[in-house]
Write a protein that binds this DNA or RNA. Structure first.
Length: 287
DNA sequence: TCTTTATGGTGAG
DNA sequence: TCACCCTAAAGAT
């Protein structure tokens, strides 16, 4: 389940469990045997996340991990099962063991390489990025905003779920050119994504629906639900939670997005301002 | 036991 | 635009 919130959560949990301690590092599967042997027994100084990248610092040796689509960490406190045939990496200290399976990247790099990787990424809402940085990246993209949000050089850490949810919550059609968005729409996207990612990091699951909207007491309750956490992602053919219009799915940026035809109109709606200057209009949300 | 699915990204054509 | 890589877990048989 790796979007940025998952990666930052892993960094936090692993920092708490392993940082400042000597750690046992092995590669049960063998595909990271040489790297594991180099790190085994050494002190893990710190764990950091940026976007979807993880960096484990052992002095000037840095373990770089990217989970990709199917990669995951399984963490055990106390008794742990034997690693499976797919366990690329095992990190252990005291009572805690973390198994890594299916990562897209698991490699040793030096500090310069880390700098290059981070330099190629846009602002990370959970990593000190700013709304101004995001706005500057969006302003120079002619691609659809739905594609731009998946581009890690525009904003780091957003994946297919946060993209669909943020565009829905801000009432923005995914096909609209990024640079044509109004400043308030860009601001809405950044703030919505940042807030949702902070919540996701805390809950360990993406929740965007307002609890009161579905009669729930808290986001924690929604996190346990499979049906009520999200507004748009993978809900094609179902009625919009806000207006009951049937949600529609198509491809944007080589991945499937789902959106509401009514809440996310192709062009921002405008209406005449009653008490403003003659001919003045203001934007209104689809819903 | 088999099949399906996934929140990502790259490289070839 | 497509094929392809990585693996666990849920669902189907």
């Amino acid at each position: 389940m790796p979007e940025g919130h998952t990666v930052h959560r892993i960094a936090r949990l692993h920092r708490e469990a392993f940082a400042g301690r000597g750690v046992r590092v092995t590669s049960p599967q063998g595909r990271f045997a040489a790297g594991a042997a180099r790190l085994d027994g050494r002190t893990l100084d710190d764990v950091e996340a940026y976007g979807k990248q993880l960096f484990y610092r052992f002095g000037s040796d840095i373990l770089h991990i990217h989970l990709g689509l199917v990669g995951k960490f399984l963490i055990y406190h106390g008794e742990a099962p034997a690693p499976t045939a797919g366990t690329r990496l095992s990190i252990a200290a005291g009572e805690t063991v973390a198994y890594l399976a299916g990562p897209m990247v698991c490699e040793l790099i030096d500090p310069d390489t880390e700098k290059q990787i981070v330099a190629g990424l846009g602002p990370d809402p959970l990593g000190g990025g700013t709304e101004e940085q995001f706005a500057a990246m969006v302003a120079r993209r002619s691609a659809p905003i739905g594609a731009a949000l998946l581009d890690q050089s525009v904003i780091a850490g957003v994946g297919n779920v946060y993209r669909a949810e943020a565009l829905f919550l801000c009432g923005i059609h995914p096909d609209r050119p990024a640079r044509a968005l109004q400043p308030r729409e860009v601001a809405c996207l950044w703030r919505t994504i940042a807030g949702a990612m902070r919540l996701g990091e805390r809950l360990g699951r993406i929740v965007t629906v307002s609890p009161e909207e579905v009669g729930a007491a808290s986001p924690e309750d929604l996190a346990a639900s499979d049906d009520e956490r999200l507004y748009a992602y993978r809900r094609a053919g179902l009625p919009c939670r806000r207006c009951a219009t049937e949600l529609r799915a198509w491809t944007v940026g080589a991945r499937t997005i789902t959106a509401c035809p009514h809440c996310q109109p192709p062009h921002p709606l405008r209406r005449t301002v009653q008490d403003g200057p003659a001919g003045a209009t203001e934007e209104v949300r689809g819903c």
